[in-house]
Write a protein that binds this DNA or RNA. Structure first.
Length: 925
RNA sequence: GCCUAGGUGGCGGAACUGGUAGACGCGCUGGAUUCAAAAUCCAGUUUCCUCGGAAGUGCGGGUUCGAUUCCCGCCCUAGGUACCA
């Protein structure tokens, strides 16, 4: 009887489902273990072979942990709000809900065919109103909170109001937008609206104006990478920088805590590093520069700069402001107005990304105005330049061309002076940005080192009220509004222009049905199309929706208690399951999802709703499986295609071609012509009668026609083979191109196991013959190695050690029941279907899922002797066996007499003999 | 530019804290079986040669009895980030 994987796999998938084998409940008698995959967006094209890589790893781990006696929580759900479904709705008019539902059904089917051990009773989707009710509820908590710097945590807004009533904001230390100081009396005298506006500056969810990439033609805001050279990537319509009122979450308040707690996480070094850079902490000082009064102006203007090198303050020779700095129009001298405003207009057209990425060209403009150096009182010119960004620091820098490369380039270009204030070893260089050396030309700082000078000058600045120490973060508050339909509506309505939050009993605020999914003619988001999108018939609801990461920033909590209608998660369940022990997903979410989830967790911790401070203890990043794309080359402005080897002779355009039309790089021309209408009449220039395609490795995607679907492989080889093949491809974290080259080998491995159990006629052949000591030794080694390797996520090596065992059993015709039982147990996390089947054939009627992982018999593994590699001058020549209790002197004696040793030494003198027990013998001559 | 990860046979990849380089699998070669093919099984497979060896883990140095592993300099690939003051 041969290995009929189709029958076996559907049999056990059905069994797991009807017996609810993977459903998990809180059980105090067992230790919990929470294994989570980053939940997918259910796209229209279904799963491709790259998706399951992480799911297979987490499934193996989950099944292994169950065998080790843990109570495993292993759920799956869908991040189902998002753009593709909305795009599809715009094109076809089909409601995104329907698209999403169909896609999810397909995903679920595909996931089940892989034999994953998900607890489907906990399945959730972010677009479900019973889920987004709680996303809205969490937003409400943000809205009703402020961040107290003194206690370093979020607190209820009610508390802030009490403080204002007592003492205004005179003593408050809080993360906020710019607010004027007011006293208790000021506060009491304010109107309701004025108060609300002030509170809005302190809330953790707040509204503010910001510049966005607005595309009038598309009626929508575009992300930075959707804009190319001032035009939209899709459609090529002009894009302008427009000020818009948007919701923000005050993640910047958490910068330091997000930074501090990274140390405790068991994440890869590179992901941690990415988050640290993203948060971007720098220590420095704020320094105030007075602007010199012009004859026609009487006002006192002060420019505040942020610097990380206050020690170089005597080297400042000019100031540079961002082109959108708010003082520019006020301070620019008359004769310079035209040039400056031209420059400002020019830079406004570019997106910030473009401004910063186009670094080759140094541009700038003099304002005609001078500032006064706060210490030397000398006059220094004020310039503007696009290399300064208004959203970082104060939007102004003090330029020290002698010790900063950017300032140096700028000064060179515009012939600005340079003052050297640090003497360095490389004294010849005009520019030195290092920190070694002594201060010169710096008055009271002379002869000090950089660090001392820094401390001293900050002291001086603070004493004289011209500056103060300051820690700056790069991390900016996160924009939380999207001008889209398919997302969570904000639980917000506006009363006289002031945002108000809905009461809990009004949640969820459901997404209304609309006719069309496009923005309105006036440029309002799609929700503006809904009639009666207002509260109590006269107060309009917020028309924006929340971004994709709103729902995904807390879903790991909901899985613990997915059906709860009273709370987003109950305290009991949270106490039991705690944080995610193992989180598996792609490293592309390093600074997005993973940072936002940490932020949400810390906030919910502050507000007392949860008792964990970090969401994901251990993070495993699976590498992407890349596709192999094929290309054809069309001669420009023609319908003729050139074979790959000849493309240098023509001017050609590269076009993706469906990989199903290509075999071994050779194009099937007939099928290609049928593929698309436009290619029907095409002609070909061939090589040796064949059309060769170009090949490149890139991300799998529908638009690249390089997607390989797992269904076909499961049909041909079965899910167990696919699971092992993907794991055997290499280390889980590595990026690798998809190939099926080795799949036969893996499939053979399973067939070999099947044959250990069955004879050619379908009879079972396991027996009770005592296995050899060698087999026992290898078996125990394998049990140990598989366990160690699963724990270190090195699945490829655990599989190869299983192969070694199976090869040995096959070659030595060992069919011992005791041995085979253990083999099936340790293999079952990898190939669960075949193992369930064999387990039942061994005579057990309980599922293998909750059996016990076999323990290692360490006695068997103990060695009495060791086969030493004997090397000469470090080069291994032959092997000799010695007992482990022979000492060095004894062994040396034997060696010196040995014929082979004499042969390699010949007549030379032995300098020494190195003997490392259980490792090596090295004879040096 | 900076940060991070990596570079080992024809290919995917092994090698624990410095100790037998190339486990395991693919592919390839030869053989068995077969009318034949598929499947299966057995043997071989880093390179070079004079069959005794010699070289060999991106390149060039160094430390060491011994380096894929540690140190210094460089090259290449992938990911991230970018006038961040």
């Amino acid at each position: 009887m041969s290995y009929n994987f189709k029958e076996i796999e559907s049999k056990w998938q059905h069994y797991w489902q009807i017996k609810n084998v993977f459903s998990s409940n809180e059980d105090d008698s067992k230790t919990k273990f929470y294994v989570l995959d980053m939940f997918p967006y259910p796209s229209g094209s279904g799963l491709h072979v790259g998706h399951p890589l992480g799911y297979i790893a987490s499934d193996i781990y989950s099944r292994f942990k169950r065998l080790k006696g843990y109570n495993v929580l292993h759920p799956m759900g869908y991040d189902s709000f998002g753009l593709p479904a909305e795009q599809y709705a715009i094109q076809t008019g089909q409601h995104p809900e329907i698209t999403t539902k169909n896609n999810i059904l397909r995903y679920r089917k595909q996931l089940n065919k892989m034999g994953f051990s998900f607890d489907w009773k906990r399945e959730l989707k972010t677009s479900d109103k019973n889920y987004y009710k709680w996303t809205q509820w969490i937003f409400k908590q943000f809205f009703n909170s402020w961040y107290c710097i003194k206690d370093n945590k979020a607190k209820p807004i009610k508390l802030l109001i009490q403080i204002f009533e007592k003492e205004g904001n005179l003593n408050i230390k809080a993360h906020s937008n710019k607010v004027l100081k007011f006293s208790k009396d000021n506060w009491v005298a304010m109107s309701k609206n004025e108060k609300e506006n002030i509170l809005l500056c302190y809330r953790l969810a707040y509204m503010d104006e910001t510049l966005v990439n607005w595309c009038p033609e598309l009626g929508t805001v575009l992300a930075n990478d959707e804009v190319k050279d001032g035009f939209s990537e899709r459609g090529g319509h002009p894009v302008i920088q427009k000020k818009m009122e948007q919701w923000f979450l005050r993640i910047s308040a958490y910068s330091q805590r997000l930074l501090d707690d990274i140390k405790e996480l068991d994440w890869t070094h590179s992901i941690k590093e990415q988050q640290i850079n993203w948060i971007g902490k720098s220590n420095g000082a704020l320094v105030k520069f007075k602007v010199r009064k012009e004859n026609d102006k009487n006002e006192n203007y002060i420019i505040e700069v942020f610097t990380t090198r206050p020690d170089t303050i005597f080297g400042v020779t000019y100031l540079t402001l961002a082109p959108d700095h708010k003082l520019i129009s006020k301070i620019t001298a008359k004769n310079y107005h035209e040039r400056v405003s031209n420059y400002v207009v020019k830079t406004n057209k570019k997106s910030e990304r473009e401004r910063l990425s186009d670094v080759k060209e140094v541009t700038g403009e003099f304002t005609g105005t001078y500032a006064i150096h706060p210490i030397t009182k000398k006059e220094i010119p004020i310039w503007i330049s696009e290399y300064v960004i208004s959203s970082y620091g104060t939007g102004a820098v003090m330029a020290v061309p002698a010790h900063d490369l950017r300032d140096f380039k700028f000064a060179k270009k515009f012939n600005l002076p340079l003052i050297k204030v640090i003497s360095s070893k490389d004294n010849d260089n005009e520019i030195y940005s290092g920190k070694e050396g002594k201060l010169i030309n710096s008055d009271f700082l002379n002869n000090l080192g950089v660090t001392e000078a820094n401390n001293k000058v900050i002291n001086f600045l603070e004493k004289n009220n011209i500056g103060l120490m300051k820690i700056q973060y790069r991390l900016r508050d996160a924009i939380f509004s999207r001008q889209r339909y398919w997302g969570e509506p904000f639980p917000i309505y506006f009363k006289l222009g002031i945002p108000k939050i809905l009461d809990d009993d009004k949640l969820p605020l459901e997404l209304p049905s609309i006719e069309k999914y496009l923005p309105t003619k006036e440029g309002d988001p799609p929700l503006a199309r809904s009639k009666n999108w207002e509260y109590k018939n006269n107060m309009p609801f917020e028309k924006n929706t929340m971004p994709g990461w709103a729902g995904s920033s807390w879903y790991f909590l909901r899985f613990m208690d997915p059906k709860n209608s009273k709370e987003f998660v109950s305290k009991d369940k949270l106490n039991y399951w705690g944080n995610v022990d193992l989180y598996v997903g792609g490293s592309e979410h390093a600074t997005g999802h993973l940072l936002y989830s940490r932020f949400f967790t810390k906030f919910l911790f502050d507000t007392g709703h949860i008792n964990i401070n970090e969401p994901f203890k251990k993070l495993l990043n699976q590498g992407m499986i890349l596709g192999k794309s094929n290309f054809v080359y069309r001669i420009k402005d023609s319908n003729t295609f050139v074979s790959y080897g000849l493309i240098n002779k023509y001017e050609v355009i590269r076009i993706h071609v469906d990989i199903n039309l290509v075999k071994n790089s050779v194009l099937n021309i007939k099928r290609f012509k049928e593929w698309r209408q436009e290619f029907k009449e095409s002609e070909f220039i061939l090589e040796n009668g064949k059309y060769f395609c170009g090949v490149e490795t890139e991300k799998m995607s529908k638009s690249k026609y390089n997607v390989v679907n797992p269904d076909e492989i499961i049909d041909n080889y079965g899910a167990d083979t696919l699971r092992i093949h993907e794991m055997f491809l290499g280390p889980i974290e590595q990026y690798k191109p998809w190939n099926t080259n080795g799949i036969n080998g893996v499939h053979n491995f399973l067939k070999k196991i099947w044959k250990l159990f069955h004879d050619d006629y379908g009879g079972l052949k396991f027996n009770s013959i005592k296995p050899s000591s060698e087999i026992l030794k290898v078996l125990n080694k394998t049990i140990q190695k598989v366990e160690e390797d699963i724990e270190s996520f090195s699945f490829n090596t655990s599989i190869s050690s299983l192969m070694v065992l199976v090869n040995l059993l096959t070659n030595s015709k060992c069919y011992s029941k005791k041995i085979l039982e253990k083999l099936v147990l340790i293999l079952s996390p990898f190939a669960p279907h075949i193992c369930e089947e064999l387990w039942s054939k061994l005579g057990y009627n309980q599922s293998i899922v909750y059996q016990k992982y076999p323990s290692v018999n360490t006695k068997i593994l103990e060695e009495k002797s060791y086969l030493y590699p004997v090397s000469f001058n470090g080069k291994m020549r032959f092997k000799l066996e010695f007992s482990l209790d022979q000492d060095k002197i004894e062994i040396e004696k034997i060696l010196l007499k040995h014929d082979k040793v004499k042969h390699y030494i010949q007549n030379k003198k032995i300098m020494k003999i190195i003997f490392v027990p259980k490792k090596i013998i090295n004879i040096v001559f």
